[in-house]
């Protein structure tokens, strides 16, 4: 009878340590920064706004330069070119950011 109790004890203790380890582990790997950019529509919105923003800034800069220096069409042309290049750069960066943001599981987003 005393032997019985002795046999009952070890498994429950084992189970306890297993549960303890599980609870601790669960807390430890809770931190996993994720970046996701939602739906395809959201993505498209984001990319087009990047391109548009670059273009607008370029045009504004060129137009302002023309107004100040009187270089009439050239500033605007250069601005459009620069703005477009910057917009493309923005888009490339945004795509890279959404594609690479979580290094481990970036594939999930595509």
């Amino acid at each position: 009878m005393a032997d019985d109790a002795g046999k009952q004890q070890p498994p429950s203790l084992d189970e306890f340590s297993k549960r303890l380890a599980a609870a601790r582990g669960g807390d430890a790997n809770a931190k996993e920064p994720r970046a996701k950019d939602g739906s395809g529509m959201g993505r498209a919105f984001r990319l087009s706004s990047e391109l548009l923003a670059g273009l607008i800034v370029g045009v504004l800069l060129g137009w302002g330069l023309d107004r100040l220096a009187g270089t009439s069409p050239w500033g605007l042309l250069a601005g459009i070119f620069l703005g477009f290049a910057a917009g493309v750069l923005n888009v490339a960066r945004a795509m890279k950011a959404t594609g690479n943001a979580p290094p481990a599981d970036g594939r999930n987003d595509d």
């Binding site: 706004s49 923003a53 910057a86 923005n90």
Partner: peptide
Amino acid sequence: VLIEFVSFLSRPLSLSIR
């Protein structure tokens, strides 16, 4: 540098436009 500058300036714009 010019392109990067325009790109940097466009950041607040793209943020707000979106």
